[in-house]
Design a binder for these strands. Structure first.
Lengths: 345, 345
DNA sequence: ATTAGCACTCTCAACGAACGAGTGCTAACA
DNA sequence: TGTTAGCACTCGTTCGTTGAGAGTGCTAAT
């Protein structure tokens, strides 16, 4: 379909625009070493590329800019992985240096470093808690009428809730309750916990252990509270540094989106494996017209556990970001597996 | 010092500028009902107010704008508390509706609502964890060589760390260890925990319980990790909606500040009681020249536990923000006390 | 097939005039 | 004596104009 020269010109155009954020003209391209053609020749090919929809002009007599289709083609056919420098790898590895740390903290730190290395905004979707299984229940009384319920999952995650203890329950009652819970609920997925809790409550009532009724109801209530997806952003305001968001309106609408769309999955696909690139309107969101999102997933053991993504202008440095995400998701998977499953690398 | 009329004019000027963000002229003031003077009279007084340093002109023939000194005077002498509507009170109370919830979640939600009600950015300094005391230790084994250490504090806060278990420790070893910990560390302030842990380790070694040596060291390490102050922002990008930050450079430097100054206390005083107002350069930070920060503290029982603050342009609606913070800090104190201490309101 | 040359188009920055908002001052007024 | 009306003046803002510069498309030459 495209001649070799056209391919070359498209690639150089995209690369140059990614670097400079300025429309690129034929003269500018012809000056590059790897392009041995005169401006006129290049003009012809650029005109063709424009006809085919890969390039656009911002106005009749300006240089050209890659269209969304252009980026797509570039990403699908011309993406050569970029070497990540030792120094950068080192930075990434530094996340895991403090070995004894909460997974949440690791994820937070990853988001930060990722945004610093790319100078774009990063989004990390935390471990999907609901996939974890209950490992141990425990309850710690705080005052006469309140206590903390703690659930440790097999992945080392700890959920806790304060709940109120109806009057007239003694500490031995609570001990009994903890035993009951551990007997019947260990191994249950966190997302089915509310239902199972309900069932357990019922069952116990039928067995005339009715004494615990109120206590269970109170606990039940506190566990009902829905677990939102935990989303960590890194370098939200990095977007402000991109020239395409000098237009305050655009900046605002994206910031607004990030702050209010708790339904991030609508923006980027969590479930798919590997690296995904969504360009401009492929994100299905008006405010994201000028943004691209690159997503990678990480896994613990064999199970997909979360996603990491970079959001930047469509003119983002795809090569670099893809390579970085690749390294990062690999490291995250490996380290989280090591920490949580005790695998040794 | 100031005549009544000058007072009136200063007040009206500040109020008007807070509302419109436009320099206010004499004509505009004279049109207000509460000001029965002609533009000429007002001009004279405004010139005087300018001489005294309460007002400034942006250029020779524009209306006037309050100076920092002007705001200070306004805040010190003219601040009449504003009524918070029932609807808004309701919104604030809604934070505490789900009674069985983590304190962290309450604080997060508070930050969000506060920024929505004020349309400025809110900063909540979370409970100062280090002031809490250990209520209960527990350890849950995860794999052969890792476990979660859990500390519940008297305030219902739960800290947890994954740490590695050196080979050859059995689960009964761990049980013993938990007992030892609970015997010796309950009641200790969280901030002295690392030191005390060290001491306990030493003591045990002297008593030739050396068997636990490695285990303690591993646990120790995991507890060493420093606890940063937890800072929650609400509506960071609200600042972008303020006309004074149409200048992207300003917006950027403030955003940068918020993202990188983990040492927030340098910006606003955590320890002081009551409501504090810091205007412009009083914040001692270049990027905050055009911002004011209003701080209130909340307490659990009798102990200062954290702060809530609003950061907005110097041209912020002081009346409203002060009133809102007043309500909010009161409610927070009351509810947190209720939840954590079991006080009944 | 490629390139040089040239007329054409469009943006952008600079300049200046017209306009309007607001002031300071003076003189009139109660 | 305190207040107000009137008026000249200042400055920022807006809007059209103009000239320079960058880049194109097309045609003719290589």
């Amino acid at each position: 379909m495209l001649t070799n020269r056209q391919l070359l010109i498209l690639q150089v155009t995209v690369d140059d625009f990614i670097e400079t954020a300025q429309p690129v003209g034929s003269r500018q391209i012809s000056k590059k070493e790897e392009v041995p053609y005169s401006p006129a020749t290049i003009r012809n090919d650029m005109a063709d590329l424009e006809d085919m929809g890969f390039l656009e002009k911002t106005h009749t007599s300006s240089g050209r800019v890659p269209s969304q289709k252009g980026y797509r083609y570039y990403v699908d056919n011309m993406l050569t992985p970029q070497l990540i420098s030792k120094d950068e790898i080192k930075q990434i590895r530094s996340i895991f240096e403090d070995r004894m740390v909460e997974t949440e903290q690791i994820i937070r730190k990853s988001a930060k470093i990722l945004s610093e290395l790319t100078s774009y905004t990063s989004i990390l979707l935390g471990l999907d808690v609901r996939k974890h299984r209950v490992k141990r229940f425990s309850i710690v009384p705080l005052t006469d009428d309140s206590a903390v319920a703690i659930i440790v999952t097999d992945s080392g995650h700890v959920e806790n809730r304060v709940f109120s203890i109806p009057e007239s329950y003694t500490s031995s009652d609570i001990e009994q309750m903890v035993n009951l819970l551990n007997e019947s609920l260990v191994g249950v997925h966190l997302h089915e916990l509310p239902v199972k809790l309900e069932v357990v409550t019922r069952t116990l009532l039928n067995q005339r252990v009715g004494h615990f009724n109120e206590l269970f109801i109170s606990l039940n209530k506190s566990m009902m509270i829905e677990q939102e997806d935990k989303v960590y952003y890194g370098g939200k305001m990095q977007l402000l540094n991109q020239p395409e968001f000098n237009d305050l309106e655009k900046a605002r609408s994206i910031m607004y989106l990030m702050d209010h769309v708790s339904q991030i999955p609508s923006i980027f696909p969590v479930d798919k494996k590997g690296i995904q690139i969504h360009i401009g309107s492929e994100n299905n969101h008006l405010a994201m017209e000028d943004c691209s999102v690159i997503t990678a997933s990480y896994a613990i053991g064999d199970e997909q556990m979360g996603s990491i993504a970079i959001i930047g202008p469509t003119r983002m440095d795809y090569k670099r970001v893809v390579s970085l995400l690749d390294v990062m998701s690999g490291d995250l998977s490996r380290e989280l597996s090591r920490i949580l499953l005790g695998h040794h690398g």
